[in-house]
Amino acid sequence: MIADAALLARAEALIARYAAAGQKLATAESCTGGLVAGLLTAVPGSSAVVERGFVTYSNDAKAEAIGVPAELIAAEGAVSEPVARAMAEGALSHSRADVAVAITGIAGPGGGSARKPVGLVHFGLAVTGAPTRHLERRYGDLGRGEIRRRAVEDAVALLEGALPD
Rank of each mutant, 00 (worst) to 15 (best):
T27K: 04
C31Y: 02
C31A: 01
T32P: 03
G33F: 03
G34P: 10
G34N: 10
V36M: 06
V36E: 08
V36H: 05
V36S: 05
A37F: 02
A37D: 07
A37G: 15
G38D: 13
L39P: 04
L40F: 07
T41Q: 04
T41H: 01
T41R: 03
T41W: 01
A42K: 02
A42S: 15
V43I: 12
P44T: 11
P44M: 10
P44C: 10
G45R: 04
G45H: 08
G45A: 06
A48R: 14
A48K: 14
A48M: 07
V49Q: 05
V49R: 02
V50S: 02
V50I: 13
V50D: 02
V50G: 00
V50P: 00
E51V: 03
E51Y: 04
R52C: 12
R52M: 09
R52L: 08
R52F: 04
R52E: 08
G53R: 02
G53F: 03
F54G: 02
F54E: 01
F54P: 01
V55A: 02
V55R: 01
T56H: 00
T56K: 01
Y57E: 01
Y57I: 04
Y57T: 01
Y57N: 03
Y57W: 07
S58W: 08
S58T: 15
S58N: 05
S58H: 03
S58G: 08
N59S: 14
N59K: 07
D60G: 11
A61Q: 07
A61W: 03
A61D: 00
K62T: 12
K62F: 10
E64F: 03
A65C: 12
A65Q: 15
I66Q: 06
I66M: 12
I66R: 06
I66F: 11
V68Y: 06
P69G: 04
P69I: 04
A70F: 06
A70G: 09
E71Y: 06
E71R: 15
E71L: 13
L72E: 12
L72H: 06
L72Y: 05
I73L: 13
I73A: 13
I73H: 14
A74H: 09
A75H: 14
A75K: 15
A75D: 15
E76I: 09
G77D: 13
G77S: 12
G77M: 09
G77E: 14
V79L: 12
S80W: 14
S80E: 13
E81Y: 09
E81L: 15
P82H: 12
P82W: 10
V83I: 12
V83D: 11
A84M: 10
A84P: 06
R85T: 07
A86H: 09
M87P: 05
E89H: 03
E89K: 01
E89L: 09
G90R: 09
G90H: 10
G90I: 08
G90W: 06
A91T: 13
L92A: 03
L92R: 06
L92V: 01
S93I: 00
S93Y: 07
H94S: 05
H94C: 07
H94M: 01
H94P: 01
S95P: 08
S95E: 08
S95K: 00
R96K: 13
R96A: 14
R96F: 12
A97F: 05
